[in-house]
Simulated scan of single mutants.
Amino acid sequence: MSATPVFSLIYKSKATQNFSPDQLFELSNKANARNEELMISGFLQFKNGDFLQYLEGEKTAVMSLMNDITQDNRHEVQSIIYLPELTERFFANWHMRYITPNEFNYLSLTDLLHDLLMQIDKIDQSPEEIENRALRLINRVAIHYNDTS
């Protein structure tokens, strides 16, 4: 259990350029190295030009990284959802992982991911409902990867 609360957020962004699978793995590897230095963990997903990234760690570090992410011209951040403080990390065993669309299919999470991506920008969705959808997805990813780590 963490001595200090764990801050977390999830964001959606739209790519401003094309990304090959190799470029996505390279991006993830660089993020993994940086996140290790910052003691941040999370995952990255990319589908049909949309990024969905989950970040968790110390609040100042996560907010600083998020500021840098918003300045990256390879994508445009569309939505940021700040999640409730955690008592422990969902992803303590890695710093950043790119989860491919095929992995989401294998985990039977494609529908949950699609639902979150579709609902995240709807005006009529309450912040609590979007937060609940995001936490459901994060929890399902964590259950699988923590069982196989």
Rank of each mutant, 00 (worst) to 15 (best):
E58T: 13
N29P: 06
V77Y: 04
N18V: 14
E88K: 13
S13P: 13
A142K: 00
M96N: 11
E128D: 09
N93F: 12
L9G: 02
I120F: 01
V6H: 08
T16I: 04
R133Y: 04
D22T: 11
Y82G: 05
T110A: 06
D121F: 00
A61G: 13
R89P: 12
A31G: 11
I123W: 06
R136D: 14
D115Y: 11
K14G: 10
M63V: 08
D124R: 09
K59C: 04
H95Y: 14
L107P: 07
F104I: 09
Q71W: 00
L109K: 00
L109W: 03
S79D: 06
H75G: 10
L135H: 07
L116M: 02
Q125C: 13
L135G: 04
E37N: 11
Y54F: 14
Q45G: 00
A61P: 15
I69Q: 09
I123C: 10
S13V: 06
R133K: 00
F19E: 09
N93I: 14
N48L: 06
S13W: 06
A31C: 14
N48C: 02
D72G: 05
I123S: 15
G49R: 03
P5Q: 05
L116S: 04
K30Y: 07
M1W: 13
D147G: 05
Y145W: 10
H144F: 11
